[in-house]
Amino acid sequence: MTATLPPVEAAASDAAAATGPAVVDGVAVARLYGEPLFALPQDLYIPPDALEVFLEAFEGPLDLLLYLIRRQNFNILDIPLADVTRQYLAYVEQIRKTNLELASEYLLMAAMLIEIKSRMLLPPKKSDDGSEPEDPRAELVRRLIEYEQMKLAAAGLDRLPVHGRDFLRAQVHVEQALAPRFPEVEVDELRAAWAELMKRARLNQHHTITREQLSVREHMSLVLKRLQGRRFLEFEDLFDVRRGPAVLVVTFVAVLELARERLLEVTQAEAFAPIYVRLAYQSA
């Protein structure tokens, strides 16, 4: 229980309660808003509501009842209703003097406690099947246990870290690169370009039969030489359709091998645009 007074009345009442005027700072008997007061005022008036009494804050009748039981280490399964009801009514009497509307909720629980106590004083009624009659406190005990479980769960959730109260998310600003990022070439577009090359190669077939040793590594070197000193080159310009499909296949494999080894890049400005090839280590 805590009592509070306004600054003026608190200083004056403390001085008046003493047997004699207590001297503060060697001269003044009190201080008012930091200023020394050398004599008590004769017309001091304390309004009736200046003294406010703050009781323990409870969230409802069940919370108060659980507090009374746990404070005195009573067994919740065997509640001594006489003692608990007496303390409960004392608290209700305090809040009834200040807040009758709030006290109505607690009076309902008080009536239930008195009703349970009266049922315990009466002889128990025998059940039809001959079993033991139910304890009148059973329903109240069940509600108290459920309320305590929910209260403990809420307290556990409140102890968890909360964003904005216990921690803040780290925010990092990443500046976007100014260089344009071209869309990647899809496999279907690369296959379509290759099919178009093969179609043009069939139109330039020769009947001369020769045996030519083709090397993928050699054509990889040729492709790198073609791209040397160039910013980029169209995909089709890397192939010589006049040399036949065999050379086209080896050249295409060489391009794929160079792309796999990240020695060149295959790009295009947008979807369905011409495909370009450039050296990977060359600036855009």
Rank of each mutant, 00 (worst) to 15 (best):
R86W: 07
V174A: 03
S131D: 08
S127Q: 10
L89H: 09
R191Y: 14
T98C: 00
L100Y: 08
M109T: 05
P183A: 05
D188P: 09
S104R: 03
R143D: 09
R96A: 03
L140F: 03
A103M: 02
Y88G: 00
D166N: 09
P136H: 05
P133E: 00
A154Y: 07
E148S: 12
L168V: 04
P123D: 01
K151H: 04
K151A: 03
R96T: 13
A179I: 15
R181E: 14
M109S: 03
L178M: 13
A179H: 15
R165V: 03
R169D: 05
G164Q: 03
A154R: 15
L100Q: 13
V172N: 12
V174S: 04
A138G: 10
L108I: 02
R169I: 05
E101M: 04
H163F: 06
E146Q: 12
V185G: 15
Y147T: 07
E101A: 10
A192F: 14
V84E: 07
E146T: 10
A177E: 13
A170T: 01
I145K: 11
A155Q: 13
P183F: 00
T98M: 00
L144T: 06
Q94E: 08
Y147D: 09
L168G: 06
E146K: 14
R191M: 15
A193D: 13
A90E: 06
S131K: 14
A177V: 09
Y147S: 09
I114P: 07
R165F: 00
A138C: 10
L144H: 08
